[in-house]
Design a protein around this nucleic acid. Structure first.
Length: 625
RNA sequence: GCUGACGUAGCUCAACUGGUAGAGCACUGGUUUUGUAAACCAGGGGUUGCGGGUUCAAGUCCCACCGUCAGCACCA
């Protein structure tokens, strides 16, 4: 029932692979009609919207007289099975628009879809009692859609517009073979197991508290890792000629009026009227309206403008790890990936227009370097001018061209995200995928001609005239909280040694080895290694089990033999039992791995993310109707 | 914010159609001194998210609020 012409060039795929993908596509598309058939039986008054195949399955949007819940799934699936068993034929027909309008007279969504179709006729597909406006293609008969499963029901706005009615969307999946369906459901289960919120609780990294919704409460272990991650990005900056500043998080609204945030971003900001509720507070603080900064750019503009600047200083790369606050809608929050308080590995590069391509190339290189170091899978998108933009269209066009040229010449693949730029400039965004296959924007490169003007920033050129610099906003991790969450899922909680909260656990076999264990621990700690000693009077098997569950990279087991010889029996997360080693040797190895940030972790690319990535490749075209 | 679901001990979960809250792990005390994935005994711990309501009686039913989850919309 939807147009899904494959627009992309498929020459890079073998015909067999393509045929397989097309078949799956048709099965899911047909399964969505079977779902609609069941719904029509249950609710004769149901209004039907759209029901396209998607990356991992399909959905159908309905307008129903009552809310559906998962308790209805048994009945719906039962009716769907009956439709499959009846082995109805999918028959295509072509109707005049007039006939279609008459047939769908009480189907407002279908009527709207008909209005949007070009030409005088529309394509119709029928199976048994169900007739739908649909471009196809479908499988021949319903029996080809045996292996399906309803997954969830949720609200979805008609045509994705929050001002239009909210429909009920049933998500489901379907496969050609029973085994494929089972494998997929198993993967969903696995994905839940590596959910960062679950891992964070189990590994004692961070948690949440309703006293500050959308904020992370870091615990010692999580914070230890977070600081390592931040240190990495700080090091990247230092090695690439960035300077770092640190500015306030609370500003008079004047700053945001000047930056444009007051006009374009106020709804997402925390505004504080008056400085204090106390009667004792000074009059001045009562009369000023403050805002918590949602971005670091305004105060970085202040920094640049704080004195006369020379062209010799450009490009000037200014980093800041400021705490940002954004008043996100309650429904938008999602663990650590979408929060209201976070910190970015943020930097603003002040440059001449000629320096733009080189600077963008530098940032792209840092993105590649960092993401490949973590073994992450990522993709690029170019976001263009939004509706609510600042400045002139010509300047925007120039900025978009500059970004496009830079990314084109780098030879990277990317897709275009129309109208998704920041209010001050277009951007290249880099997306990562979480355990559940959802993509998250992480790295970002934004080109900005607006803020330097808004702050009247200039530098003195070689011929002693004043010019306005261009600003490149960039972040490699983006939100460190989000990046941390993605890494946590990526490694399923088992960080490489350099990033692990506890890098070594020293386990004594009897109380007699406690002193030696602590001696080794003190020595390692003096070298900067994060060590814990388990000298409880527990059996070694239990200590090992707990250390394994906590996914600690190194375990040193010390019994009488090791203590006497200056050795430890080493176990590692990745290799298991390693054998007896001299303390000095294993210490050297650990220090080397930490210094090199070795990727000594098992990175199993989750099957679901592979699958979702493959689906992206296949380029799920948005349904027209 | 919208639609739906959910909220019981620190964690994971029990408690039939309303009858007055229980287990494992964790924690505390003790016994055990242990050789590579989980010893034993005992104990403490919950105004069942918060506030109303219905009822002789509410973890269970109703309402409102807070929070969480999925999706939509928004976005780093």
């Amino acid at each position: 029932m939807h147009v899904h012409e494959r627009t992309r060039d498929m020459s890079d795929q073998s015909d067999a692979v393509q045929a397989e993908a097309d078949k799956l596509w048709r099965i899911r598309h047909s399964a969505s009609h079977i779902l609609a058939t069941a719904i029509q039986e249950m609710f004769p008054e149901a209004k039907f919207a759209i029901g396209p195949p998607i990356a991992d399955g399909f959905y159908y949007d309905f307008d129903l007289p009552r809310p559906l819940s998962t308790e209805d799934f048994d009945e719906i699936e039962g009716r769907m099975k009956a439709v499959v068993k009846a082995n109805q034929r999918f028959e295509r027909d072509e109707w005049s628009k007039a006939d279609a309008r008459e047939f769908f007279a009480d189907q407002p969504y279908k009527l709207e879809l008909i209005d949007g179709i070009e030409g005088d006729t529309v394509s119709i597909f029928k199976n048994g009692p169900f007739t739908d406006l649909c471009a196809g293609p479908h499988v021949g008969r319903t029996k080809q859609c045996k292996h399906f499963k309803l997954l969830k029901v949720a609200g979805a706005y008609w045509r994705g517009d929050e001002n239009r009615p909210m429909l009920q969307r049933v998500y489901a999946t379907a496969f050609a073979k029973r085994d494929d369906l089972d494998a997929h459901l198993h993967m969903l289960e696995e994905a839940r197991r590596r959910d960062h919120r679950k891992l964070a609780r189990e590994l004692d990294l961070f948690d949440f508290n309703k006293l500050s919704p959308g904020a992370i409460f870091w615990r010692p272990k999580g914070w230890a890792s977070y600081l390592q991650l931040q240190a990495y990005f700080r090091e990247i900056e230092q090695k690439n000629d960035y300077v770092e500043i640190c500015n306030p998080i609370l500003y008079s609204k004047e700053l945001f009026e000047q930056s444009g945030h007051w006009d374009h971003y106020r709804d997402h900001m925390y505004i504080i009227r008056g400085g204090s509720e106390s009667e004792e507070a000074g009059e001045e603080s009562h009369n000023v309206t403050y805002g918590l900064k949602p971005m670091n750019c305004p105060d970085t503009m202040l920094f640049f403008g704080s004195k006369k600047r020379s062209y010799r200083e450009l490009p000037m790369r200014v980093a800041e790890f400021g705490m940002l606050h954004r008043n996100e809608l309650a429904g938008a929050l999602s663990g650590a990936t979408r929060v209201r308080q976070f910190c970015q590995d943020d930097a603003h590069i002040f440059a001449t227009e000629e320096q733009i391509p080189g600077e963008i190339d530098n940032v792209l290189a840092l993105v590649d370097q960092t993401y490949s170091m973590f073994g992450l899978d990522y993709h690029f998108e170019l976001s263009t001018r939004p509706e609510d933009f600042m400045g002139e269209v010509e300047v925007w066009d120039a900025a978009e061209d500059a970004l496009k040229t830079a990314i084109d010449s780098s030879g990277r693949d990317y897709k275009i995200n129309e109208g998704d730029g920041a209010f001050y400039g277009p951007k290249i965004d880099i997306f990562l995928r979480d355990a559940l296959g959802r993509t998250w924007q992480c790295a970002t490169i934004q080109l900005d001609f607006q803020l330097p003007r808004a702050f009247d920033l200039t530098y003195t050129t070689a011929d002693n005239s004043e010019r306005t610099p261009v600003v490149i906003h960039r972040a490699i991790a983006g939100s460190l909280e989000r990046f941390f969450a993605v890494l946590l899922e990526h490694f399923a909680g088992a960080f490489p040694t350099w990033l692990a909260p506890v890098q070594v656990k020293i386990l004594s076999i009897t109380d007699d080895q406690a002193d030696v264990a602590w001696e080794i621990a003190r020595d390692l700690r003096a070298s900067g290694v994060r060590v814990e000693v388990d000298d409880r009077s527990e059996k070694i098997g239990k200590k090992i089990a707990e250390a394994e569950v906590s996914k600690t990279p190194y375990m040193f087991v010390i019994g009488k033999r090791e203590a006497e010889a200056g050795n430890v029996a080493v176990r590692t997360w990745t290799e298991g039992r390693r054998g007896v080693m001299a303390v000095a040797d294993v210490k050297a190895e650990i220090l080397e791995r930490i210094a090199n940030r070795t990727l000594d972790a098992k990175v199993e690319v989750s099957a679901i993310s592979q699958l979702a990535a493959a689906a992206d490749e296949a380029d799920a075209a948005p349904p027209e109707y």
